[in-house]
Design a binder for these strands. Sequence first.
DNA 1: GCTAATTTTGATGAAGCGTTTACGACCCTA
DNA 2: TAGGGTCGTAAACGCTTCATCAAAATTAGC
Lengths: 225, 225
Amino acid sequence: MTNAEILIIDDEPQIRKLLEITLQSNDYKIKEAATAREGLLIAANHPPDLILLDIGLPDESGHIVLQKLRQWYTKPIIILSVQSSEEDIVKALDNGANDYLVKPFRTGELLARIRSSLRSSGTEDSNPVIDHNRLQIDLAARTIKKDNELIKLTATEYTLLALFIKNEGRVLTHHYLLREVWGPGFIDQSQYLRVFIAQLRKKIEDDPNSPKYIITESGVGYRFA
Amino acid sequence: MTNAEILIIDDEPQIRKLLEITLQSNDYKIKEAATAREGLLIAANHPPDLILLDIGLPDESGHIVLQKLRQWYTKPIIILSVQSSEEDIVKALDNGANDYLVKPFRTGELLARIRSSLRSSGTEDSNPVIDHNRLQIDLAARTIKKDNELIKLTATEYTLLALFIKNEGRVLTHHYLLREVWGPGFIDQSQYLRVFIAQLRKKIEDDPNSPKYIITESGVGYRFA
DNA sequence: GCTAATTTTGATGAAGCGTTTACGACCCTA
DNA sequence: TAGGGTCGTAAACGCTTCATCAAAATTAGC
C-alpha cells in the first residue's frame, strides 16, 4: 500500500523519532501518541491502517490498550516492547496482536513485518496511477486509460508516451527521444518521431489537429503538458 | 479454529517430533514432509490451514519453496529457521511469509503465533474464490470453473492462468511469464507461450478467435482482463 | 512396463507493427 | 512571391511476431 497510515503509541520520544524517520522515508504517513489515552483517542477518531504499540506506557499497560483496541479495531497491531518473556509475548498475541518485536529491534525487520502485516490484512492495493486530466497511466500495469477507457498502444507508442509522462512539462529534444526509444543509432531519424507522434495524438487527443497533450516545440522537440 | 491442519516441512526428525507432539496436544492435525519436494506435493494435493516451513532443507532452499507455495497458497506460512540474520528474515517476509521464528524457539510463543496467524487469516473462511465474470478461480483447491462448470487444466496451464489471475489488468511480459512458469533458463522460448496461451484460450474463452480474457500485447506480452 | 496424457518441437500461414516513401501544409527569410 | 526548412498525414512494403496444427518426445498413471 502506498502511503499507509501508521499510528505509533510509545512514550519514549527517541523511539518515536526513530520510527518517524524510518517510516516516513518509506512513504508511510505517521501519527504519534505518547500515552495510552492519547493513542486510543487518535485511533478512534481517525483509524490508521496499522498500529505500532508499546507495552510499557506510563498511564496504562499496553496489554489493556490492546484489548480495548481489539474490541473494534480489526487492522494489524504490532507490539514493540522491551519485555522479551514468553509470557508477555503469548499474552499480547492472544490478545489480538499480529506481531511482537522485542526492543531494540532491527528497522529492516520491522519494516518487513509491517509490509507482511499490511499485505495479509488485505490493506495493500493497486498500482500507482498517474493522472493527467483525463489520461490515466499505470506504469506497473503498462496500461493507458482515457476517461477510464483503455487505449490500445503498440510497444513503441507506449515507450514513447511513457517517456513523455515521466518528463511532464519538460521539452524533450528530438535527439533525446530518438536515443531513448530507438537507440543511439537513430538520432537523425526524426521522421520516425513525426509518424509516431501523429499516431499517439490520434489515439489520445480529443482533436489531433490542435493537440493538448503533446505539444510541438518547433525546431527543438516535443513537450507533454 | 479447532482441528486446524498444519503441514510441517522440516528435514530434522527431532524437530518434527517435537512439533508433532506439541501441536497434536493442542488439537491440531499434523502432516509432515522432510524435503522441499515432498512438502510442495503434500501442500498441493491437500492444502493445510497453515504451513510451518524450515529454510534449511536438503533439496531446495526454503526461500524457493516459499515462493512456489505463494504462487497459489494463500493461508499462513510461518518460517522456522536457525538463520537469524536480518537479511534472511526480511527476504522471507517479503516473499510472503506471515511470521519468522528463529530456532530454537519457545513452544509457547510458537503456539501463540500460530493462533495469531490462523486468527488473522480469517480461519473459518472457505477457500478464496476469485470471480471474473463467468470465471471462478479457487486458488487453494487449484480449480477453475466457468459457468459453474469445472474446467480441466494441466499443471502448466494452471500455473500460467493463476499467474494471470493474480496480476489481473497488468501486462505480463514474455520474459516474466516464461521465467515464472518454466524457469529462468526458458526466457527465450516464447513459442511455449503461444502454444499454452492457445490451449488456455480454447478452454476458457467463449470465442478463442476473439479472446476476452487473455489479451495479446504484441511485442510485449499478454494481459488478463 | 504399457498406455494415455502432457509437454516440447517444428512447420506454416496470418496478422500486427515498424519502416519507408511520398506529398502537402505551414512558417520564415530572401 | 519563390524557395528552403520543419512538420504532419497517409499509405505501401516487408519483417517480426503471433496463432494454429500436428507430430515427436517426454512424463505420469495404472
